[in-house]
Design a binder for these strands. Sequence first.
RNA 1: GCCGGGAUGGCGGAACGGUAGACGCAGUAGACUCAAAAUCUACCGGGGCAACCCGUGCGGGUUCGAAUCCCGCUCCCGGCACCA
Length: 677
Amino acid sequence: MGEKGLAYRKESYVNWDPVDQTVLANEQVIDGRGERSGALVERRLMPQWHFKITAYADELLDFSGLDWPERVKTMQTNWIGRSEGAEVTFEAETGDPIEVFTTRPDTLWGATFMVLAPEHPLVAKLTSESQRAAVDAYVEQASRMSEIDRQSDTREKTGVFTGGYATNPVNGARIPIWIADYVLVSYGSGAIMAVPAHDERDFAFARAFGLNVIPVVQPDGVEPLDGATMSEAVPGDGVMINSGAFDGTRTGKGETGGDGIARVIAWLEERGLGRGKVTYRLRDWLISRQRYWGTPIPMLYCDACGIQAERVENLPVVLPEDVAFMPTGESPLKQHPDFLEATCPSCGGPARRETDTMDTFMDSSWYWFRYLDPSDETQAVRRDLTDAWTPVNTYTGGIEHAILHLLYSRFFTKVMRDLGLIDHGEPFERLRNQGMILGEDGEKMSKRRGNVVDPDDLVAKYGADAVRAYLMFIGPWDQGGPWNYQGIEGVVRFLNRVWTLFDGPAEPGEADEARVAELRRAAHGAVKEVSEDFEAFQFNTAVAELMTLQNAMSKLKNAGLVAHPAWAEARSMMLRMLAPIAPHLAEELWHRGGESGSVHVASWPTFDEAALVADELELVVQVNGKVRARLTVPADVSEAQAIAAAKADPNVAKYLSNATIRREIYVPGKLVNLVVS
RNA sequence: GCCGGGAUGGCGGAACGGUAGACGCAGUAGACUCAAAAUCUACCGGGGCAACCCGUGCGGGUUCGAAUCCCGCUCCCGGCACCA
């Protein structure tokens, strides 16, 4: 990855977690807090190792061929945050070029000022002597503010004039340069052109500081805009005005009819003032961690040759196990001479080993490839095994991984593909997210809240099978919800009944034909339903279906039937379907029933369509869509017979006596609807 | 603000446009027991003696027929959010 330019070191503003004493990737900062520690992160300028995930931004936006939840695809799409627009160069009066990114180059003529992020490298140079004190104070204040405070959108706009001016390249206007913390140094170029007439934020800023507002897009069906009196920004499309040769051009990106944006970009490119540009919210993946526990970054520092990659034959670099953990807050690797001392692969002189280790998400980004043959010391992955076993068909996990593990894994898989290690670019073909079981109070379980349900306690009381089966039964697997103690007893009873059903005595009786047919219908019907449920991850209805089968079998059970081959068939089906739900119980009953081998390697049961057919069925009769009768009819009833039987029913006839039948609807084997007036 | 997902009995939840409430919990009655627990049986959306009427967040619509499809709302949950 280093050779391909996909791993590199650069100095940048990073998220520093003061509790874990390490930096974190953007994905690991939730609402301004460290994902693990919960501590407010600080911004620090540090040199760190990164993976160039942004090189794959567009490919990561392509989910074609993947059967993934819409929610996850949306979250990743938002996280990557692609936006199309233009990069335009403004020139400051100091002669410095200032790059800005805009999605609305068609509003360039309305740029009446510029705003730089407080951290922008040109701030100090652009600031005039009379404004220096105010600017320094503002920059200092911004640097101390937490990310949370800075990003709160209810804040009034703040900012300071630098005293410097720039020239609007499209019309030569002299416009003031301000700094404000609503412009982020980490997005785009860290500087914006402000078009207050057509951008809400710029409008609020302009009104707060008395800056010019010049409308350059006149929307349809609205009074002509007046910058002096407008009460809010007008962000939509319309016809360009106050824009020189472009006056009268319709704005838009083509889909709304106008093509102003494309025409302005072409015009800028002709004159060398700017060019079309795509910007992403996604940042490169910061993988350095100032921790001992992590995979060492195999890079070396040589005083003579600079940063060098460790020789391939020396890989992998492993963590020393004889480190001294001291309460310094620093990685013990920094105090370990044997680890630190290395040889420069370029000049053969002494080199110092990198002591940062990799984010552990690095490891989870490719483990399923490595796990295919973890003992192979000669190569990272074995091609014949990855070809045979990957991509993963179905992958499950919590939604909390939507933009962490799942995004990193997709990136890593694409990199491995491009390095020729594997032949595919997506790790997981089908993804399903399980819901989270919350505490009884409906809140996320936490020790602090005291609402934690400990599965070990439940296992001790009810057994592992009962707890497992209840978790499958409690509700839709993908939804989650509050934990509820009330239902588990029902699952325990069900499992006890299954035990009694197969291991208990039977009353005397006969295996008459009707009984056998009913038994087979119940068992084969359950196989059909449960198979479909498992395929669709609907485990709650699968368990319910097995409960129904147990109820049916318990009712039918007698000594004669138990001796019949259909009973053994039904028991075998039941236990194989129960195996993923109550594995211990199913295995025990499997052996007690005289089966050989393990139920867990037995094949999944298949059903016989013929066994599902009943000789009689219930026909619902409606008059004008309201149920008026339920009739038992032979299974092979014809449409004419069904309608005749419906009309003959006394309760139905009552509604027909003084009415005319307008229409007769027949749903085979299910329903007759007589439309009368 | 933008984007997802959701709303059905006392509770968890079922339901290819075709019997709303499968399955389970809780509850009621009965059997067994000296009694209780466990177990088993029956009942179990609301109203009504009954015929029947009303019922899937709210208001419309499509349809012979809507929890399900369409339009417009309300509320709840999740994600993103000063991203230029």
